[in-house]
Design a protein around this nucleic acid. Structure first.
Lengths: 329, 329
DNA sequence: TCAAGATGCTAATTCGAATTATTACAGGGT
DNA sequence: ACCCTGTAATAATTCGAATTAGCATCTTGA
């Protein structure tokens, strides 16, 4: 059971008062507080011997700072089905957290009554951390609004629409990335485009579709939006370039086309818009762009630091990287 | 930044005391505590109107429980080079942590002066958590001894030798798994065995070698131990079955043998002893066993719970699962 | 009508650490 | 003796919620 040591315990062992231990611990030399060198040494020795560490809860109760950053996800982050997607973000987060000397608290306990994770369940523990990084394709709007309303320091990974106020975030610049792809395709002669995917729901989907519409409008070319990429339908409509929101859909399309005897990218170009959230075939090298996930993780933690220090509301979009691939021509 | 509402605030608004608010909030009907129905309703109404949520920090302070489990690794857990190895453990840990309603604290800040991670650095934060799971092939013996000495509640993933006292752990039963492999090989007619690998250093290595020696002794067959698996040397000595500590070494051996025109498992059988810690070729289906990593993660958290609740020192070895593969014959 | 018992609520304390205000005791100068 | 100035340490208070002990007030029953 080994109950936790308290400052009171340390104080007894060192033959001083609890206050003195606190003062030594925080190295308070300012504001008329003085501790004799040998007393300080004695206290430190006891602390060293016992391995005492201040109870973060009590500390947090009094002032504001744990050096703990929270990471909230609506799903488990480790299971490998999703991990291919989450991992780079976490890498970046871990890196930067180590940089700023904070530990990471994964909110794995946030299971609400219905089984789904919610930030604010009966017993929200979000404030255990100094601040929090939100990770996930889509985030519950009520949760988001509550975070903003309660002024919880947080940063979303992925752009988010306002939710009762601006939402601090570090996102990927999907519109620009999609526009860039369309630009390249137009330069290669394509005139009839299709966007295949939801294009709605999560901001990340909407942003991609928006970039698509902007680009086709700017070029004065044809651009349609379909939910699902049906090969016949696309080819029948004279589409020569398809932008697939989901990588797996794009890959499937390529395979289907090739099976049908169509050449990719000879007869049909297929572009992917970011990373795979679902497992995708390995043998198709899709042209498209890469989401700077690791960098987003890093920047999110940096942004969170700014929130904590200055109370700002940082919003930032990082550029995506073009991936050459072999499905655009 | 609107200051958070407190129970005191609610109490004022409802015209009751803070204690009453607490009682209503926790629905305490037991132990001689009674609240009139209309008072209760009035308090609840104020709570509803204001959207008050209890400060979890203050609550934890009183409960003497942070519901935080620490995870310590000597290396970053996310970078993908290692993640293939660590991930299943983390999956299990996360799962079980969710089960018991605890959050996970990843000690990413534990960077000692020399750049290497150490549990006890200048400002050890290990006690931030209620207890801690240790993850890593080998764990610094001094750290381990200090953990035991200071009675920090922890569980090691992987069996550990005593370090100034028994070390609580959840490990894989390597001796049994290796013995099983040798049994199978003997049953297939093998009489000359070799164990290739360190066989020392980390407990996991030593355990494998120990199992090997036990098995060959029990069967009265020949068993030698070599550090590196040199094909010529092995074949020259008439070895027909090699147990490779490192999967990548085993795979390399198979490839080398086949290049040399030898048949695997016709002329030489190769067995692997657990999971790959280094990337291994995909095209060799080694026979051997699988470490129940996910299960180990789960059990470690369960064991940690026992440590926390009863102050025990659980030690447990989980069975490994035989992997059929195609390199034993 | 008065004690016994039930009812409804609150004052006071606790948790652990941080901070402020205060005390205690030197030694030095007059 | 007296005051003053450093110096060194502590007592007391704070944070927000949970809990215990206890104080009122109101019913009963004899």
């Amino acid at each position: 059971m080994a109950k936790r040591l308290t400052q009171q315990d340390i104080a007894r062992m060192a033959g001083v008062s609890q206050a003195t231990v606190s003062l030594v611990l925080n190295n308070r030399t300012d504001s008329g507080v003085r501790i004799a060198e040998d007393t300080r040494a004695r206290v430190l020795e006891v602390i060293r011997r016992t391995g005492y560490v201040a109870n973060p809860i009590a500390r947090r109760l009094h002032d504001q700072r744990n050096r703990i950053l929270g990471v909230f996800t609506y799903e488990a982050v480790f299971p490998s089905t999703r991990s291919d997607f989450y991992q780079p973000f976490l890498e970046g987060i871990e890196e930067q957290a180590e940089e700023v000397g904070c530990d990471l608290l994964l909110f794995t306990s946030a299971k609400a009554t219905d089984g789904k994770r919610r930030i604010f369940s009966d017993d929200s523990r979000i404030r255990l951390a100094d601040g929090c990084v939100l990770l996930g394709r889509s985030i519950d709007r009520d949760d988001l609004a509550q975070l903003v309303a309660e002024a919880v320091p947080f940063v979303s990974i992925g752009r988010r629409d306002d939710a009762g106020g601006p939402v601090p975030h570090v996102g990927a610049d999907y519109p620009a990335a999609v526009r860039d792809l369309v630009d390249r395709a137009v330069a290669l002669g394509h005139r009839r485009f299709a966007y295949a995917g939801a294009g709605t729901g999560a901001e990340s989907s909407a942003d991609r579709l928006r970039g698509f519409k902007q680009a086709v409008a700017a070029h004065g070319v044809e651009g349609t939006h379909v939910q699902f990429a049906g090969l016949d339908q696309l080819v029948g409509a004279g589409i020569t370039c398809v932008l697939a929101e989901e990588v797996s859909d794009g890959a499937a399309l390529v395979l289907a086309a090739r099976e049908r005897g169509l050449s990719v990218p000879g007869d049909l170009s297929v572009l992917m818009l970011g990373a795979a959230t679902r497992p995708a075939p390995q043998d198709v090298e899709l042209t498209g762009f890469r989401i700077p996930r690791r960098e987003m993780g890093r920047r999110a933690v940096q942004a969170l630091t700014e929130v904590l220090e200055h109370g700002t509301t940082p919003q930032e979009l990082l550029a995506c990287e073009f991936v050459q691939g072999s499905t655009l021509g």
